[in-house]
Design a protein around this nucleic acid. Structure first.
Lengths: 362, 362
DNA sequence: CTGTTAGCGCGTTCAA
DNA sequence: TTGAACGCGCTAACAG
């Protein structure tokens, strides 16, 4: 295998005719040094293509300039975008991202944390929380950490989450005020996740605030998946008193809901309105185009990385609980007017790399 | 910032009462050593929670046990899945993945390669090729490398690509044989990419093989994006002799095509059939459900990683050009029968992590 | 079978 | 302003 053999600091120093100490000082700008030698060293380093060995540096400094990110599934757009956001900030800040796709189960996450600590990452960002506070504390063993989209009480430097209940309230308000819906059902995800729980509670609160009754059978629960969306929706449609509008707690649930309703021959949005927390990548391209809550996932990643890096310099800072705003994009599935082609022209969808971006709400 | 201070080999050795050399031998299984001391060292290491410093090891061995992966856009499902596949193999093989989202432009990729080499990765996987062979050779400077979805002649240990022309041929054959289409148009992506070029040529060849005429205006070109799909499709529809079927060279183009055709009031698939190379995540949930070429993206990532790691042990092996098979999934957009709900029940879409997997063809 | 020595490449003393 | 010496933690080479 290719053993790396490159120019060392010593080579640079030798070329210039100074000690490695001097060369080091010139390159790092520490200590006093004459302008002449500094210039000479810099030029020599440049000419030789000198790159300091990160291992030697880390061995000496006891820090790796590396940050770990644990996601349950990189292939999911939400997590992939967080990776992207995090990396863009970390690069700027001089850190390298180490990504681990852990799966969602506890064992995988424990493994991932262990691996990252074994690699001496300076900090860890975690997007899935199958442990309690003590569990995490044990695993982390003092390594700085930030939670994304989830919160674990009293562990880590902070968390970045969405305004989940506010978002659901936007959906409820829009359905009720603009379109006059009263019998609104909620398709939920897993209640053991922070986001799932908050969205569910947000729904109940928003309905209560408007004095709208929620029949128990109009609040269902399931997995965070398309299949579950189908099942929950069929169940709702078959009810003696089916709802006139559906709020899906996630993009996958909404996709399932759309498919299920269509296959039952319902005309959307006339027979039933369907809206969603989470705007799927293809939200504007669905039939009907999906009214949804959007948010800046890229910013979630960036903010998280920023929060973590900030924590490096200030370990004793209090837990930082950041909430990111969300907003409503009205399209056709709620009953509003929406011209897909027009929307495409004005907002996004032109990423040359092929990304299907949703029009960002202003 | 949290300086790592942990148990060193020396601590273990001291506890047992042997030299670090002996301890090292016991832990690494090198050299002769008595069973008794080996056991003692292992136990002590375990009890102390000893983890060898990767920096010290790398400094000494001159290898990092780390592999770099460069993608133009992690947020894109295709690349995200490659990341996932690559990581799953690398983990098994004892390597850590270092991911860089470089963007698609040459500068970003050059930067990424540079960064990775600066981190002494043992090898690099590249998914976008904005350079010629000499360009890459210069940048890589001997670092083992594998290309994914693209090929650069004569550089690296090998490449993993799809059976692009075979895939397009499957689409052409299906449209012609099963549905009797003769005027088939092709919506192309960027011809400067290996995949784009091969799909375009595959189309022309497949049509020629069947003796079908292709009017020049029925082969268009553009970006790899939804917007471009919309534009190209509108252009085709407005032609004096519009095609009766459309083959989109990528998922994004297909999504754009669907939206454009629908917005013009065309009934799909009766007025126009639309099929696609690339099965979008939501292929089965579109209206109409999209007939498409699918392939195992996860396997692309795995195979690539496998190929790279194999190259570590055998640097002089010849260039390994791996082609991954693709297959046709017929749904409704070509004119076939397709029951979305039924498909959901039988194939995929039940990933608890929320992944929207396409039914895999058997 | 085991220990001593030395060096991977860098930064940081301390002394000149 | 510069340099010599040392140590970060580990393993390979060379004794014993």
């Amino acid at each position: 295998m290719a053993r790396h053999s490159r120019v060392r600091l010593a080579d640079v120093a030798q070329l210039v005719g100074v000690s490695t100490t001097t060369a080091s000082r010139a390159l790092n700008g520490r200590g006093e040094i004459s302008d002449a030698t500094r210039a000479a060293v810099l030029e020599a380093a440049d000419r030789l293509g000198f790159r300091p060995s990160p291992f030697a540096q880390s061995l000496q400094s006891r820090r790796s300039n590396t940050v770990g990110l644990i996601v349950p599934n990189v292939a999911h757009h939400f997590y992939a975008t967080i990776v992207q956001g995090a990396q863009s900030y970390l690069k700027e800040a001089g850190y390298q991202l180490v990504l681990i796709d852990s799966g969602e189960d506890a064992e995988g996450v424990a493994d991932a944390i262990d691996t990252l600590i074994g690699h001496w990452v300076d900090g860890i960002m975690i997007t899935t929380t199958p442990f309690t506070a003590v569990g995490f504390s044990d695993l982390l063993n003092g390594t700085p950490c930030v939670f994304i989209d989830e919160t674990v009480e009293g562990v880590g430097a902070g968390s970045i989450t969405l305004e989940n209940s506010e978002g659901v309230a936007l959906l409820v308000d829009h359905l009720a005020e603009t379109h006059g819906h009263k019998r609104i059902a909620f398709l939920g995800g897993r209640p053991d996740r922070t986001d799932g729980r908050e969205r569910r509670e947000g729904f109940l609160n928003a309905m209560a605030r408007r004095g709208l009754l929620v029949a128990p059978e109009h609040v269902s629960e399931g997995e965070w998946s398309v299949r579950s969306g189908v099942e929950q929706t069929l169940h709702q449609i078959d009810l003696a008193t089916p709802p006139t509008a559906l709020i899906a707690a996630s993009a996958e649930l909404a996709l399932g809901a759309l498919a299920a309703a269509r296959s039952r021959g319902l005309r959307l949005p006339d027979d039933m309105a369907i809206v969603s927390f989470d705007d799927p990548e293809v939200g504007a391209l669905l039939e009907p185009a999906l009214t949804a809550i959007t948010y800046d996932t890229l910013a979630m990643g960036e903010r998280s990385a920023r929060l973590l890096v900030a924590a490096f310099d200030n370990e004793s800072a209090p837990f930082n609980d950041v909430r990111l705003p969300v907003s409503l994009v009205t399209r056709r599935s709620c009953g509003c007017e929406f011209d897909t082609l027009q929307a495409l022209k004005h907002a996004g969808f032109d990423d040359p790399r092929g990304r299907v971006t949703s029009p960002s709400p202003s």
